[in-house]
């Protein structure tokens, strides 16, 4: 057995103990360009406001990626959360109405168990 394999067994959680996650692909429409930091702060604020510290810690939200589109009035990205907290996270995303006084609206387009699945979109 090589060293690398043994290390990987020690360093990574076995699959049965890993947390189950969901990846939400979302779409943003906004008045002006929003950057990642502003959006992330607003997502956390909304989550805290709705579910408090305990609920926010249980939902394990993480912003995987966020990109602005060319026309500055929309954007999109992928958000990670715990697999049983999808509806709660969706509600807290829906509660976001503005970022630093710029109005925005967020919609979840797709939910997947893998990043790859959330990235791929059905052919229109």
């Amino acid at each position: 057995m090589n060293m690398k394999y043994i290390l990987s067994l020690l360093l990574h959680l076995p699959p049965s103990l890993r947390e189950r996650r969901r990846y939400l692909r979302f779409e943003v429409i906004c008045e002006r360009e929003i950057d990642k930091r502003e959006l992330l702060k607003e997502i956390w604020d909304s989550l805290y406001a709705l579910y408090g510290d305990v609920g926010a810690s249980e939902s394990k939200v993480w912003l995987i990626e966020y990109h602005k589109s060319e026309d500055a009035n929309s954007g999109g990205g992928i958000l990670r959360c715990a697999h049983d907290k999808v509806d709660e996270v969706r509600a807290s995303l829906a509660c976001i109405h503005s970022v630093n006084d710029a109005q925005i609206g967020i919609r979840v387009i797709k939910i997947s168990g893998t990043i790859k699945g959330a990235t791929l979109l059905r052919r229109q």
Binding site: I29, C30, E31, L50, D87, E88, R90, A91, L93, A94, C95, H97, S98, Q103, I104, G105, I106, R107, V108
Partner: peptide
């Protein structure tokens, strides 16, 4: 009142769960 206030149906259902 604006396009930003509209929410998709699934989001409305999630809000109703509140």
């Amino acid at each position: 009142h604006t396009t930003y206030d509209l929410r998709a149906p699934r989001e409305m259902i999630a809000l109703a769960a509140l």
